[in-house]
Amino acid sequence: MTENASAIIVRDLMAEFAGLTGLDPPHDRPRRYLWTDAYAVCNHLELFRRTGDATYRDLALRLVDQVHHTLGRHRDDDPRTGWISGLSEEEGEAHPTRGGLRIGKPLPERRPDEPFDERLEWDRDGQYYHYLTKWMHALNRVSRVTGDPIYTWWAVELAGIAHAAFTYAPSSGGKRMYWKMSIDLSRPLVPAMGQHDPLDGFVTYSELQAAAGGTILSVEIADMARICRGGNLATDDPLGIGGLLFDAGRIVQILEGSGRIGQLPGRAGSAYEDLLASVLEAAQSGLARFAGGGTLRYPADYRLAFRELGLSIGIRGVGPLAERVRENPALSRRADALMRYVPLADEIEHFWMDSENQKAGTWMQNREINTVMLVTSLAPEEFLAI
Rank of each mutant, 00 (worst) to 15 (best):
K134V: 01
S172F: 03
R334S: 01
V375I: 09
W352R: 02
G104T: 04
V203C: 03
L34Q: 04
A155V: 09
A345F: 02
A38H: 09
L239M: 04
D58M: 01
A360V: 01
H137Y: 08
I261S: 00
T70Q: 07
S171C: 02
P115V: 08
L239I: 02
P115W: 09
L189T: 11
P25I: 06
H95W: 14
T36I: 06
R226A: 02
I227W: 11
R267W: 02
D53A: 12
I369K: 10
Y168L: 13
P106W: 11
W83I: 10
L321G: 01
H74T: 07
R57F: 00
W153D: 06
L13T: 06
H68F: 14
D58L: 02
R334T: 05
Y205I: 06
V325Q: 02
L287A: 03
A38Y: 05
V279Q: 00
E349D: 15
P320N: 13
G262C: 10
H196Y: 12
L208V: 03
I150R: 14
R326T: 02
R250Q: 14
E89R: 10
Q358K: 15
L384Q: 01
A54R: 12
L23M: 04
F383M: 07
G52E: 02
L309S: 07
D37M: 10
D237W: 04
E220G: 08
G92Y: 09
G126I: 14
P265G: 05
I315S: 13
I386C: 10
V64W: 04
A385K: 00
T133F: 14
I9H: 08
L199S: 08
I251F: 05
V372M: 05
L245H: 11
S278A: 15
G201D: 14
T70W: 15
M364W: 08
A288N: 07
I313H: 11
D77L: 05
E327F: 08
I8S: 08
T152Y: 09
D117Q: 13
L245C: 12
W179F: 04
Q66E: 13
I103Y: 00
G72E: 14
L276S: 00
D184N: 13
L378S: 07
A248M: 04
M181E: 12
H196G: 06
M14K: 08
V156K: 06
M193T: 14
A54Y: 09
I84S: 07
E349C: 14
G266M: 08
K105G: 06
